[in-house]
Design a protein around this nucleic acid. Sequence first.
DNA 1: CTGAAAGCGCTTACAG
DNA 2: CTGAAAGCGCTTACAG
Lengths: 353, 353
Amino acid sequence: MVKRTAKLSDVAAAAKVSLGTASNAFNRPELLRPELRDLIEKAARKLGYLGPDPKGRLLMGGKTNAIGFIPAGEMSVATAFNSPFLRKFLSGVAEVCEERGASLVVISGAEERKDWAIRNALVDGFILGHAEEVNLISVRRRKVPFVVMDLDAGPDVNSVGIAGREGARLAAQHMLDLGHRKFAIVSVLRKRGDAVWHSPGDRERQLSASYPLDYEKLDGYGDALATAGISLNSVPILECYPPSPWAEAGAHVLFERAPDATAILVMSDTNALGVLNVARERGIKVPDDVSVVGFDDAPDAITSSPPLTTIAQPLVEKGRLAANIVFDGFHSRHEIMPVKLIIRASTAFRSNA
Amino acid sequence: MVKRTAKLSDVAAAAKVSLGTASNAFNRPELLRPELRDLIEKAARKLGYLGPDPKGRLLMGGKTNAIGFIPAGEMSVATAFNSPFLRKFLSGVAEVCEERGASLVVISGAEERKDWAIRNALVDGFILGHAEEVNLISVRRRKVPFVVMDLDAGPDVNSVGIAGREGARLAAQHMLDLGHRKFAIVSVLRKRGDAVWHSPGDRERQLSASYPLDYEKLDGYGDALATAGISLNSVPILECYPPSPWAEAGAHVLFERAPDATAILVMSDTNALGVLNVARERGIKVPDDVSVVGFDDAPDAITSSPPLTTIAQPLVEKGRLAANIVFDGFHSRHEIMPVKLIIRASTAFRSNA
DNA sequence: CTGAAAGCGCTTACAG
DNA sequence: CTGAAAGCGCTTACAG
């Protein structure tokens, strides 16, 4: 037979005090006469009692002292940890958790887990890497504060995004300024799967698995290209899932199907690094033969070879802001973080001008 | 006045059923007659009731469905995310969490947070990056399963470690095989702070802030060196906190105080990469002028220049094993993971033999 | 298949 | 400063 672990009422009984007083001994000891406190502590020690069980306390309207993060697009936690982009973002989130004395619970983006967690995770709020309609409904029901990333989900839900259209415009304009006229775009496929190729043609909004942010970027590229008389419909688009080895597989498709492109506009640094790797493998020189510009300024964009020209977004700050919004429980905040062009070594003047 | 959010008893009342039946409607719907279930669901919908509050459920002996990870040595969560070593370890932990349908809560190693979390975190168990005596006592009191990493904390506490002595021996032997005779050691300083330098001399066990694993490694280096008639006491030791920029600062000290060493034995890849960077900066050629061997085979050991020769430990597997031990609640498991020498390009024959 | 009761472990007003 | 009571929101035997 198992010896039931002692609880507060046992301690109270042993010390011959009331439950309430025993509770106070642990939570507001300054209210007790020292001798009584001693008595209770002694009883607790004898019973092997370790202080109030957090589960009990929780029910009395307590905070869990933790916030949850759920990555976008069915991404597993392990994948999230290995994403340079998310790592930096999560650093910002973690900093704020630390400042607020809270823990960070990382939840799988896999569909079943996500649904369960949104209903049941013991957290005081959520940061959603993205959100489909159904999740928004569930999380709203949870009656805890939450914020969604990179998506304006309406006036009543907190969001923090970036100036995606502006960033893309800057990237494409940079290429135009360098004399490029033959483009290809690498968009982000949001679920694990083979890259999908879209030949030029009139294909308004037909990307298969993209988020609003991806369309904003497309619009931004289009804005810039239009100034040079180039239609977005004339440039091929590859949608590619960023984690390795998908990025590399996609890059091979890219070079095979768009061999004449000299300027590659990539919506994610992780994908861009895949392009860089595959270019090297295929003997294509970057930036001599082909220029590539990424997006995000993930930490490995600076150590790649060549270092990646990219559109920087303030990832750590973004994480901090998102976390602070959740902790503040503030409502109706819609923040847009600024972006900027970082010119490094993966872009150059078109050589065969 | 705030509209109190509906609870299960409200739903039961509205549907004119008992509390227990209402509970069953949500948790074991197959027990209810369909019509009754409908009735209850309708009532719930009308009241805006979203399903049982996890806090209530928890008290009835429920699981939290999460395990906690606390990094060693007061490391913040943000720092943990940025450590290549921990990232890989945590990937393994996360994989298992995913398989078990649980979340991962990452807790700060900062002293006050750690103590609070050990008492109060809503988790079903802990993985401790390391543990001081006091933490072990607290966590044991929590009566949840836990495992400590890289530390044998006695027969009654789960642990998973590595063959540290063996690994260090392999590293030093490798250097000896390459003809090296002038050594320097870089040990791990376990708390943020300036590197500390130990000149050669009889200084048994005087490292200032090390863990048992660090001493094992020291012994391992000693084992190999002894076979060549070299005393550990004759080799200088630098203790250095691995995160940037401490690693770099420490490496400068190293090169200044041990300019004649041709073989650097480093107990952590993160530190070893710092040595590589500083060597480059100072015009010291690796491996032509100096050979360096790391420890861990962190993910960036392969992409460094030159790629790092190191002692690999199975980080993902280690994370998986630790997580599984916690989930199984198994007791008295003491696992030692194997290590192996990975020869890459940071070590070479001593040139001025 | 459904209801009434007890209880999970604790905290918080409220009296005194 | 201390005690008695009610309640946090739910689940689980146990009767019927």
